[in-house]
Simulated scan of single mutants.
Amino acid sequence: MGYFDVPEVEYTRYSNRQLAAVPLAVLAVALLVLSGSFLVYGTPVQLGMDFAGGAELTVQTTSSEEEIQNAFDVEPDSIQAVQAPGVENQYTVQFAGIEDSEAIQALTEQAETNLEADGDASVVQQESTASPAFAEQTQQTALLGLAVAFLGMSVIAFVLFRTFVPSVAIVASAFSDIVIPLAFMSIVGIQLSLGTVAALLMLIGYSVDSDILLNNHILRREGDFFESTHRAMQTGITMTVTSMMAMLVMGVTAYLFGVELLASIGIILFVGLAADLMNTYMLNLSMLRWYKFHGVSR
């Protein structure tokens, strides 16, 4: 098995304010991005069909994805190649927010007209996959799940350490670990769906794992503060970087094979884990150092 050598960071060169400044600045930018998206579009992150409702067409054509993209008056929210044995040249085209039967029929006619240059285009299946009312209920359920997971994580942090600053450090890091990937999704146009919500739930777990590891080494194990920090980093950074590489490989592979959801999950987890490295070993650590040297007996 390979060994990942984690260099020892000279934290004494930086004040607590300097350490916390970078992650807090990134968090502030992420919040500004989400706020701007909310003001312009009505939602912090673009909603997928799971949460907005809409129509879905399955198209049989030898046209390219770019040609399919340009075949409709309404820009598709997603175009995915159908991956199934014996199925070739089929694409699933999704239009979020469209449920009217006349609008769906118009999209069907556009597909058959604009993609029939070689006489090969046909709509294999058309359907309205989710009504806005059902999608809104699904959205509320997913957001409730995220809120319950975050609240549960916060309770566990306070139960484990039973002190304010270390527990708040874990909660603050986890909050930033969620907000930064959400802002990234808003910038690059990754939609919020049941699949991407699952990725965000996984990030809560990753965040708690790395933060509790750091807190436990510093507060409950013997040794100097910086020695304990380095021991925690050897384990925590190795785990996180390994997971990042796995998610990056999954995302790139899924993208090459046209599996859009897996590609989105992979890149969200990669960005979230990178944010977790920053928040754990800069924001969380700065709060722990203040608590250890200034807050415990003051």
Rank of each mutant, 00 (worst) to 15 (best):
N216V: 09
V93L: 04
Q140R: 12
Q69W: 09
I79C: 06
D276N: 15
L144V: 12
G36P: 02
S167C: 08
G48P: 12
I68G: 08
G54W: 09
F134G: 04
Y281P: 02
S264M: 06
L219C: 11
L19P: 01
T238C: 07
V40I: 12
A157K: 10
S186V: 07
Q90V: 05
G258W: 14
F164L: 15
T61F: 10
T240H: 00
L182R: 02
G54L: 10
E102W: 06
D177F: 05
A174E: 09
E116L: 04
G53S: 03
I170T: 09
T240K: 01
A157P: 09
T242F: 03
I237G: 00
V252H: 06
G251K: 07
N279A: 03
M244S: 01
I178F: 14
A84L: 13
G86W: 05
S228P: 01
V159L: 14
R289Y: 10
R13H: 05
V259I: 15
A106G: 11
D276P: 05
L143Y: 15
A135S: 12
R17N: 09
D50W: 01
D50Q: 04
V33N: 05
R231W: 09
A30H: 00
G272P: 07
Y206N: 06
D211Y: 00
S186A: 15
N114P: 02
G152L: 12
L203H: 12
S122L: 06
M244H: 00
Q80T: 15
L34V: 01
F226K: 08
D77E: 13
L160E: 13
D276A: 14
I187M: 14
Q126A: 13
M287T: 00
E10D: 14
N114D: 00
L283K: 10
D100T: 05
D211A: 03
N216A: 08
E66F: 01
N114G: 01
V124Q: 13
G48W: 12
E88M: 08
L182E: 00
L27C: 06
Q137A: 13
P132K: 11
G36T: 03
A52Y: 00
F226H: 13
L214K: 07
Y206L: 03
T238L: 09
A103R: 14
M185C: 13
A246D: 07
D77Q: 13
D118W: 02
F293A: 02
L273T: 09
Q126F: 08
N279Y: 00
I218F: 08
Q191I: 05
F161S: 10
E102S: 14
L261F: 14
L32K: 00
F164C: 07
S37P: 00
I79Y: 03
A232S: 15
A133R: 13
N89W: 11
Q234F: 07
L213C: 04
F38L: 13
V33I: 13
D276M: 09
S101A: 12
G119Q: 01
L277H: 03
